[in-house]
Design a protein around this nucleic acid. Structure first.
Length: 627
DNA sequence: TTTGATGTTGCGATT
DNA sequence: TAATCGCAACATCAA
């Protein structure tokens, strides 16, 4: 159907801070618009609800500034127009005010994005605005993957590889446009609506007033990208820089090394390598869409196809990494909100982890808060988060994560295994929240999927394969260079003790300027200190494996009625690892008046008495170690 | 329905 | 030093 009037198009950037290979941008340009506004809406969901540390804020801002500059290079009248209002309230006003005919954007399939985009679609229909949505964030449209998988989530890489075969070759990337239309007028003849600030998960990230929403078009009325200071954020510490320009330059460098590109095998890359790291570090660019995954795929594939030696193959090869990404997107697309939690997730095993999420049972959603069922587990969790477990390998990784916003994939495995099934027996959702806060490449689908994988709640089940915080890093970095970089307290320690510094004789500890004592690093009497290990690893490993074995045998999944109503406790022995005491209840898992009660009714109390105590294995262990 | 193979990336002992 | 194997063990997938 031919359009009567010239198109006035808003191109809504969200997951695609780039000009190269954007099917959605191409669709917008195909309309031959009379005017085109490249727009970013400062979504309050990201500002207040998502967990975003200063490093990812900085990366996002750099991606936006780079894109805006590239737009202006193609058309000096244009830029990325940043509008500081939630899209749900902004667009209806904008459609009217700017006489918009089309809204174009790249498809986003996470649960919140779908809800938001449905609403925007409705507003657009009401305003007579045509909406065009194109896939471009993944190799395959996640909804199409799911459809080909008979509506089921994609839970294994072989499944995805087979589906990919059926769906055919990944399309070649589209070159960046050489020209861009003028934007239309940008007069604002309406009031800015400021979003609800509470709950504000990012309050901890700020040290100044939050001016995210001071005005609609920014303090200089020029729709420019906000600064860290305007957002009130603490300074970023990451050395990694965002933007399409940097991303394409990095890709060029990687591709230049044909051997690396064609023979890459993820399991053979060292998690202890830093400056330079052993993997590409392109993930944050893929996350913000400043690098197109199809661009990456084909640049790699062309090298592989012409490679004379033995090239690697998916799933371990570079393109295989993109297939894993698609797998997680496919799982998320099929499961929606339940993908992000154990509760009500039919594909997620039920394990009675410590520090379980509080649940809003009416909505069947986790609330973002958690229950401290065991003070010891909470201490383990805090020490893990702050990089003071006393295991140098774990602490080095957690410190690198906090400072730089990126750690190697196998490093993520190590700390995730340690927090969950291979050490602390703490809920994977706690770990996923920390990663969400600190990773510059945080992609909800991949993060959630990887945490489920490592905790053996979904995707993977061989819980008896457990990462040792000593043997595993030793395999990669005998000298302990990585540890010495990120845990400088230990920089003078002998190689022999680098992963087990508590075994070093006191005289040597003194000689090397660091005493192994306490639960946090401090300066003391002329010496540095580094913590003692917070538990005996092999002891904890055994407890965890037994806990997992038991939970696997009981065999509940997140959508089991017993999980939903809390009566799962009937199936667990009181002494089983985790908050299993009492036979009733969901206490601990409920929100509302009953949420804070520790255990069920009189029957539970009777049972507890009969069994002679309610102490979990964890607390018993601690008590023993203090004696 | 049963069966056999497989599963991105473990550990530790042995060769 | 690097490669191989047994370990103890289970869900999923394809045939």
């Amino acid at each position: 159907m031919a359009k009567e009037k010239a198109a006035r198009v808003i191109y809504w950037h969200r997951t695609d801070l780039r000009l190269h290979d954007s099917p959605a941008l191409q669709a917008a340009l195909d309309l031959e618009p009379e005017c085109l506004w490249p727009v970013w809406t400062w979504d309050s969901h990201y500002v207040y609800r998502a967990r975003v540390g200063p490093n990812r804020w900085k990366f996002l801002i750099e991606c936006q500034k780079d894109l805006s500059a590239s737009i202006t290079k193609l058309n000096p009248k244009s830029q990325l127009f940043v509008l500081r209002e939630a899209p749900q309230t902004l667009f209806p006003k904008l459609f009217r005010s700017w006489r918009v005919t089309h809204l174009v954007f790249e498809k986003d399939t996470d649960a919140y994005a779908r809800e938001r985009d449905e609403m925007i679609l409705k507003f657009a229909q009401e305003a007579g605005v045509e909406v065009i949505v194109k896939t471009g964030r993944t190799l395959y449209d996640p909804d199409l993957l799911v459809k080909e998988n008979h509506g089921k989530p994609t839970m294994s890489i072989t499944t995805v590889q087979n589906l990919a075969k059926k769906l055919g070759t990944v399309p070649r990337p589209i070159p960046a446009p050489r020209t861009l239309p003028d934007p239309g007028h940008t007069d604002i003849d309406f009031e800015q609506e400021r979003p609800c600030h509470t709950p504000d998960h990012n309050n901890v990230q700020r040290n100044q007033a939050d001016n995210s929403y001071s005005t609609l078009s920014g303090p200089f009325d020029d729709f420019s990208v906000p600064t860290m200071e305007e957002l009130g954020l603490k300074p970023a510490t990451t050395p990694h820089k965002g933007g399409e320009t940097v991303a394409l330059r990095m890709l060029d460098e990687i591709i230049k090394n044909k051997d690396y590109t064609a023979t890459f095998e993820k399991p053979k890359t060292a998690p202890t390598a830093f400056s330079p790291q052993a993997t590409t570090l392109l993930s944050p660019y893929l996350h913000f869409g400043s690098l197109s995954c199809r661009e990456f795929y084909w640049r790699v594939q062309d090298i592989v196809n012409s490679y004379k030696g033995n090239a690697s193959f998916p799933p371990v090869s570079l393109t295989g990494q993109l297939l894993f990404r698609d797998m997680y997107f496919g799982a998320q697309a099929a499961l929606g909100y339940s993908f992000g939690q154990s509760y009500n997730n039919p594909y997620c095993r039920f394990i009675p982890w410590h520090l379980p999420s509080k649940i809003n049972t009416a909505k069947k959603l986790i609330t973002g808060e958690y229950e401290i069922d065991s003070p010891v587990a909470e201490e383990y969790f805090q020490r893990w988060k702050q990089g003071r477990t006393g295991f140098p390998w774990i602490d080095a990784l957690m410190r690198q994560l906090k400072v730089e916003g990126w750690i190697h994939h196998l490093g993520r495995h190590a700390v995730a295994c340690f927090l969950t099934r291979g050490g602390c027996y703490v809920d994977w959702e706690r770990g996923a929240e920390v990663f969400e806060e600190w990773l510059i490449d945080h992609e909800s689908a991949c993060n959630i999927g990887n945490w489920q994988w490592l905790s053996c709640t979904a995707f993977y089940s061989q819980f008896y394969r457990c990462y040792s915080p000593i043997a595993f890093p030793q395999k990669w970095d005998k000298e302990g260079h990585f540890v010495k970089e990120f845990v400088p307290e230990l920089e003078r320690f002998e190689t022999k003790y680098i992963y087990e510094p508590w075994k070093a004789p006191i005289v040597d500890q003194k000689k090397w300027g660091c005493l192994i004592k306490g639960d946090r690093p401090v300066e003391e009497g002329g010496y540095k200190t580094y913590p003692k290990p917070m538990f005996d690893f092999s002891e904890r490993r055994e407890i965890c494996i037994n806990g997992m074995k038991n939970a696997y045998q009981i065999g509940l999944f997140g959508d089991d009625p017993k999980v939903l109503d809390g009566t799962w406790r009937e199936l667990f022995d009181n002494s089983a690892e985790g908050p299993t005491k009492g036979k009733q209840g969901p206490p601990g898992a409920m929100v509302g008046e009953d949420a804070t009660q520790d255990s069920g009714g009189s029957e539970a109390k009777a049972t507890r008495k009969r069994r002679g105590g309610t102490q979990s294995t964890l607390d018993a262990l601690l008590k023993r170690s203090r004696q």
